[in-house]
């Protein structure tokens, strides 16, 4: 069995009196494709934010490649190989599409141990990544003027530029048509084939079932199921959480 890349152990997070996460145990193995499901407000994005460092977990540990990372800053975690996309795209709106990707290349795209990327290298790399996601024709457009699907692709391109070992795609297909969903799915599959482990947070069941090798389900800040997709979907507790009593 492949080595464990990410290990979330007993993670808890509270916002005042509200418990967003409680005792979450969650693992991702190298090269794995994991779906993370749960109704709105179940704590999926909070878990992503705790793993990437946008939020600090108050309980438990987060270990990535045998290193405890939950006291590191976000950029340090990104440089160690964790990348994410945002549920609501957050482009650098004053920059072009290419410049957006170059930021991640300049600051997170260096091979481990080498913090600096030569400036000339970034333009070629950005071109290559934009070609891969199908945005090369819009490389010089302002990112603020992109369509929804292109913004989603840009989010992925920026994440790819960080050369991640683990990519967390937070609702990367929300609001897209079926054809566009397939386009993003194919892109994620190609990334996974290149060796990147992927955690997909998604409400589109078609995409989750097609993509995931394993599914974990969160409800009200607690993990209620974790296993192969068919058995998780058949789990009565999961069905109750999604469909009601």
């Amino acid at each position: 069995m492949a080595e464990i890349l990410l290990s979330v152990v007993g993670v808890g997070k509270r916002f005042g009196g509200f418990t967003a996460l409680e005792g979450i145990d969650f693992q991702v193995r190298r090269g794995e494709r994991v779906g993370l499901l749960g109704p709105n407000g179940s704590g999926k994005s909070t878990l992503v934010n705790c793993v990437t460092g946008t939020l600090r977990n108050e309980a438990g540990e987060i270990i990535f490649r045998d290193e405890r990372i939950d006291r590191l800053t976000t950029h340090q975690r990104i440089r160690r190989g964790i990348a994410r996309t945002f549920q609501i795209p957050r482009p650098f709106a004053s920059m072009t599409v290419r410049e957006n990707v170059e930021i991640a290349l300049l600051y997170a795209g260096a091979p481990a141990g080498n913090e600096r990327v030569p400036h000339g290298a970034t333009e070629d790399d950005a071109h290559h990544i934009l070609e891969e996601v199908g945005l090369q024709a819009k490389a010089d457009e302002r990112s603020g003027s992109l369509t929804q699907v292109d913004l989603r692709k840009l989010e992925l391109a920026r994440a790819m530029a960080a050369h991640p070992q683990l990519l967390i795609a937070d609702e990367a297909m929300a609001g897209l048509s079926m054809g566009e969903v397939d386009e993003i799915l194919a892109l994620l599959m190609r990334l996974n084939q290149a060796g990147v482990s992927i955690v997909m947070i998604e409400h589109i069941m078609y995409a989750v079932m097609k993509f995931s090798e394993r599914i974990a389900v969160l409800v009200a800040g607690r993990k209620i199921a974790d296993g192969d997709p068919q058995s998780v979907i058949a789990d009565p507790e999961v069905q109750r959480a999604y469909l009601g009593e």
Partner: peptide, 18 residues
């Protein structure tokens, strides 16, 4: 370029390694 990324979106900048 890092400063410009901060100006546009600080959280996205941090998540791009800045």
């Amino acid at each position: 370029r890092g400063l410009a990324a901060i100006r546009d979106d600080e959280i996205a900048a941090e998540c791009s390694g800045v």
